[in-house]
């Protein structure tokens, strides 16, 4: 469904070229759960932005359903993000003056059906009582769950999650990831530096200095826990 062909993203950092991604080739298939692991600054977020069309590569191309993003207009790319993708970012970004419920349905086309769905979803996620609160009246974990509900509202083809647990404590983080993994219908691309939350992943990509390699779930787990403990 999504394909990266020889994709590089480089930044010019005061004359010095920094590779955020380097010659990446990969495919994300329908419905699969892909974990992306790597230390800070390795290019995980950059990879996610490239795959979702939020950033244009400096070399190579990213294709969605066979079409390069660069051949699409801003409008068409936005429409793909709104209708086909879901996003959960590192920080639980919500529109501050909208209630939890309104935030979830803000991107929807038809409001009434979206509202019914969002109410059901938020209730299932334990936010039934709090869906009419403003983000400022919710805890960080609650906000991130609202973000998950927003990303999942219409069962998007791909959910991109960039360190969804980063701003949460361990238990809340696990809960948010569990919701995300269980409720998704489409593919899930989840970035993290914590391999323990990638338990159910079909594939794991390691990224280091912008270079992507594929590893098995088990290797990733042992390798990274050793690094963290040591």
């Amino acid at each position: 469904m999504i394909e990266a062909r020889n994709v590089s993203l480089e930044y010019n950092d005061h004359g010095k070229i920094v590779y955020a991604c380097r010659d990446v080739n990969l495919r994300i298939a329908k419905g699969e759960f892909v974990g992306v692991l790597g230390p800070s600054g390795s290019g995980k977020s950059s990879l996610l932005y490239l795959l979702s069309g939020l950033k244009e590569p400096t070399a190579g191309s990213v294709l969605f359903e066979g079409k390069p993003y660069t051949h699409l207009s801003e409008r068409e790319r936005a429409e793909i993000r709104r209708k086909r993708f879901g996003f959960v970012f590192q920080y639980p970004y919500l529109v501050g003056f909208l209630t939890a419920l309104e935030n979830v349905i803000a991107g929807a086309e038809a409001l009434e059906p979206a509202r019914d769905r969002a109410e059901a979803l938020l209730s299932e996620m334990g936010l039934g009582e709090k869906m009419h609160r403003l983000p400022s009246e919710l805890s960080g974990g609650e906000r991130q769950r609202v973000c998950v509900a927003r990303a999942l509202l219409w069962d998007p083809d791909v959910v991109f999650a960039d360190e969804p647990t980063a701003s949460l404590d361990a238990a809340t983080g696990r809960e948010v990831v569990r919701q995300l993994v269980e409720r998704r219908r489409g593919a899930l691309v989840m970035v993290t530096h914590d391999p323990r939350i990638l338990g159910g992943a079909d594939r794991i990509l390691r990224i280091e200095g912008g270079l992507v390699t594929e590893t098995s779930v088990e290797v990733a787990e042992t390798a990274d826990s050793r690094v963290e403990e040591g």
């Binding site: 936005a78 970004y93 991107g107």
Partner: peptide, 16 residues
């Protein structure tokens, strides 16, 4: 700016 960035990221155009 956060609101605009977020909304654009989740699929609204700058034009909108």
């Amino acid at each position: 700016i956060t609101e605009f960035g977020l909304l654009q990221a989740i699929g609204f155009t700058r034009g909108f």
